[in-house]
Design a protein around this nucleic acid. Structure first.
Lengths: 181, 181
DNA sequence: ATCATCATATATTAATGTGATATATATCAT
DNA sequence: ATGATATATATCACATTAATATATGATGAT
């Protein structure tokens, strides 16, 4: 699945600007399982506009730069339906945090504990993000399912991280003696 | 974190060929939170060999092509220590499956159920992969931690998927009436 | 007051990485 | 024997990221 399909999927829920799409996949309800950068979103929107899959409308804003609000067209709907009726690729999960934890003997206690607490903060933030929107989205089965999935996975991750937080300080202190600072 | 650091990290556990590194991140113990393709692994190894971060030794094999077994050097150890003592980037999780579930009204019952069962199979396979190696790795704290993390997260995902399997068939049948086949 | 930083908003580009493919050989099942 | 699968390295078009440029207003620090 490419960024084009991703943008169409988001636009099928509500019209949005490129900037807003980026925010949604960064901090919003889609952030848990989707990712895309400006460098792929803007070209995708421009190309799909040319192909008639999306329409655009300029929205003037006092002071701030004009917003280009994109909306999905009928042709875009067809393209999205086609793109989504395939066998999905395997999930991809990349975690530099877990890589660092795997190599913990090489990481200084300071870095290790900072990384650990940062990870816990991010997991909690994502968990709360889902929690706040569950009620308003209870009607829509797709949103309910993915929020439920995120809720289940994140609770488990947070619980595991909290359980092992105490033991970490000792392990970091021990292994940190040989680690570079 | 780039593929170079990734390869160094793997080679710090045991020497390996490019092919073996790919297998490890694809099916092995690292597959849960790491990913890399041949197109990035081979150039990374070649470049690091030129820079002296890894050494290479050709291993003849009857019939099969010769294996180039790479090993981390002292300079590589220093580079790895430096690369790992940083603030890790945010986790990245991409799931086409969850994207499809979000847009379930657009997906045919056939595709939806196939995707669901494929997802469950993959989660179970990954769960078992971790389970089989837990005992032999109980000594090493890094491996133990990341395996425990994976175990916790995957059990939660599998449980959620199993709980919601029954309700899916109905939802798919309902929404599938409008979906393209 | 002024200076830095952050948020909004679009856009571009070098660098990185993926996914597919090519090459070569061996084994195994049908 | 034919196709599929596994071992093994390598390359490349294309997709994507991470960083940066541009422009402006608001907010907060010194």
């Amino acid at each position: 699945m490419n960024v084009r399909t991703l943008c169409l999927g988001i636009l099928s829920f509500e019209e949005a600007s490129g900037y807003e799409i980026k925010k949604m996949v960064e901090d919003g309800l889609f952030s848990h399982f989707i990712d895309a950068s400006y460098g792929s979103i803007y070209p995708a929107l421009t190309q799909m506009l040319k192909e008639g899959l999306v329409s655009v409308r300029a929205e003037e804003q006092s002071g701030k730069p004009d917003k280009k609000v994109y909306a999905i067209t009928a042709e875009g709907q067809r393209a999205l339906n086609e793109a989504v009726n395939v066998e999905p690729k395997k999930d991809k999960y990349k975690s530099e945090f877990l890589f660092q934890m795997l190599l913990m003997e090489r990481v200084s206690p300071r870095h290790l504990i900072a990384a650990y607490d940062k990870q816990l903060d991010e997991l909690r933030a994502e968990f709360e993000r889902i929690g706040t929107c569950c009620d308003s989205a209870q009607e829509h089965p797709g949103t309910r399912f993915v929020n439920g999935y995120g809720h289940a996975v994140l609770s488990a991750a947070i619980a595991y991280m909290e359980e092992n937080r105490a033991g970490l300080a000792k392990a970091a202190g021990d292994s940190g003696l040989q680690a570079a600072e």
